[in-house]
């Protein structure tokens, strides 16, 4: 003992200690030993089919732990399933974005094909009028990413697919533009050639490209008018970012 204890208290503690250290009675010891061996026997006969569920929870918490774990797994699976192809703008769209991000990061993934696939999903959403603006923006981003990677491989077999998707994008953008309510009349009627806004030119080009999705070199469908039209003036790219117009064409 490290602390000084007053004699009276020490005497009481000694008495307590002596009283507690009484020798157990022989018959009680034998009874306990027999009971323990009986329990060992019973335990050895018990099936251990549930061993794979042998959590280290205390018995009183075992059921609660199992229920909580199961509920968590079910909830996570439900969220993942519900958000797997969630529509753009929905609360679960982050799940879809995360899923696409993971697919792109998987080793051995064909990034170009995946970008095209994601673009096609977004285009399908736009076609189905599911948040068209957001869907087209996503498709544009994916096609841009696909184009960036395609541009280093002029002989890629994915070029035709890309062109088709780009043409579809232009077509969808045209549809969206045509469905947009016209602005209030201001007294000035923009001339057909005076309006050089990206949306207008994209719409016009989209109509043209939709008719001939696999047109020749000069009229190859290009998303430039749509995504870079608002950024850098359509096809007049300054060379800072890749553009289909500047890309070595597979047919070249």
């Amino acid at each position: 003992m490290t602390d000084w204890i007053e004699p009276q208290l020490s005497a009481s503690l000694d008495a307590w200690r002596l009283s507690s250290r009484r020798t157990p009675r022989r018959h009680a010891v034998e009874r306990a030993h027999d009971a323990m061996l009986e329990a060992v026997l019973v335990e050895s006969r018990r099936p251990h089919a549930r061993r794979f569920l042998s959590f280290s929870f205390r018995p009183r918490f075992r059921h609660a732990g199992l229920i909580a774990t199961t509920a968590t797994i079910v909830a996570a699976a439900s969220v993942a399933a519900a958000g797997w192809n969630a529509a753009p703008g929905s609360a679960l769209f982050v799940v879809r974005a995360a899923r696409q991000g993971v697919m792109l990061k998987l080793p051995g993934a064909d990034d170009i094909a995946l970008h095209l696939e994601f673009a096609e999903q977004s285009l399908a959403d736009a076609t189905g009028h599911v948040n068209p603006a957001q869907s087209l923006a996503d498709a544009t981003t994916e096609l841009h990413a696909a184009f960036t990677e395609l541009s280093v491989d002029p002989s890629s077999p994915l070029w035709p697919r890309y062109k088709l998707d780009a043409a579809t994008l232009l077509s969808e953008e045209g549809d969206v533009e045509s469905e947009r309510p016209s602005p209030a009349p201001t007294g000035e009627t923009p001339g057909p050639t005076g309006d050089d806004s990206p949306s207008s030119s994209a719409s016009e080009r989209g109509d043209d490209e939709t008719a001939r999705p696999t047109a020749g070199h000069d009229s190859a469908p290009s998303p430039t008018g749509s995504w870079s039209g608002g950024n850098d003036g359509g096809g007049s790219d300054d060379g800072g970012s890749p553009s289909p117009g500047q890309t070595p064409h597979p047919d070249d």
Binding site: R17, S19, S20, R22, P24, M36
Partner: peptide, 28 residues
């Protein structure tokens, strides 16, 4: 274990019963 139980309970018979229960519970 017996001393621990007896220190708490003060009853030899009860301490023996509890000690027996401890070893039976320990098996599982």
């Amino acid at each position: 274990v017996h001393a621990y139980a007896l220190a708490r309970l003060g009853d030899l018979t009860a301490a023996e019963d509890v000690t027996q229960d401890v070893f039976v519970a320990a098996v599982t």
